[in-house]
């Protein structure tokens, strides 16, 4: 193998700056998208468990739609197609005046996509609660809504912290797709450094290490949340 090692390139300007700015965009895309995914996903997941059949079906349709189309295709649809479908004024605004359109689009697309996956976790969390525990809430006179608020959701969310961890990790990885519409996040910057310096090994190693660090931090954070919220006596609790 014929290769000139040069690890120093990673600490030279402008390349160090590129990496750090890439890292920043990765975090900005992933975290903003997670907020959307969590809110929308919770709503959709809850709606999948309500008595009304039409509502349940619509929520299920959301999940199937967003789960069965590759994220890349969804991203392009949001970026190239949706502005055309909007009412004229809004469409024009999105195309001409919306600040940072690539970033906003990436966040919305990634958020909507991940919401479908979060919804599945939320639904399964709600459905693992036994029928009689739900009845117990109703039996003391809680309304169905109160029963969701005080019994079913608090229990579900505590159960699903571990599977949500994996979705949260995935969103950082999936944020790399934003590069296809021009967001210069971490993977894009590593590629760019390779193109400029031909030091692909160093550039990709740097990106890999940074993703590993993100993973480690997310896992630690979620473990902390899990310990703080876990229902005493449930599997794995101490």
């Amino acid at each position: 193998m014929d290769y000139n090692w040069n690890w120093a390139v990673l600490f030279q300007e402008p390349y160090l700056g590129w990496l750090l700015s890439g890292l920043q965009w990765t975090l900005l895309v992933a975290i903003a998208a997670w907020v959307i995914a969590f809110v929308v996903g919770s709503a959709v997941g809850i709606l999948r468990t309500v008595p009304n059949r039409l509502v349940r079906t619509l929520a299920a349709a959301y999940v199937e739609l967003f789960r069965n189309i590759p994220l890349l295709v969804q991203l392009f649809v949001w970026y190239f197609v949706v502005p055309e479908l909007l009412p004229e004024d809004l469409g024009l605004w999105v195309k001409r005046d919306m600040p940072n359109p690539e970033y906003v689009t990436a966040v919305v697309a990634l958020g909507a996509y991940t919401a479908a996956r979060v919804a599945e976790q939320v639904r399964s969390g709600i459905q693992t609660i036994g029928k009689d525990l739900v009845n117990a809430g109703l039996a003391i006179g809680l309304t169905p809504l109160q029963n969701y608020l005080y019994i079913r959701l608090p229990i579900s969310y505590r159960i699903i912290v571990p599977p949500l961890t994996s979705e949260f990790l995935t969103i950082f990885k999936n944020s790399s797709l934003a590069l296809t519409i021009g967001v210069l996040e971490l993977t894009a910057q590593a590629r760019q450094i390779e193109n400029y310096t031909f030091q692909g090994f160093e550039a990709f190693t740097a990106a890999t290490v940074l993703y590993l660090v993100i993973t480690l931090l997310v896992v630690l954070l979620m473990r902390l949340i899990d310990q703080k919220t876990r229902i005493p006596g449930s599997v794995g609790a101490n």
Binding site: G130, D132, L133, N135, A136, G137, L138, A139, I140, G141, L142, T143, Q146, Y150, I151, P154, I155, R158, I231, P232, G233, S234
Partner: peptide
């Protein structure tokens, strides 16, 4: 809900709210 509140119900598998302490179960 008001009807149910006036009829106490005890289940085979207790069905206490697992995320609440004993006294919170009674206060809820």
């Amino acid at each position: 809900p008001l009807v149910r509140a006036r009829i106490g119900m005890v289940f085979q598998h207790f069905e206490l709210f697992p995320h609440k302490t004993v006294i919170e179960n009674l206060m809820m």
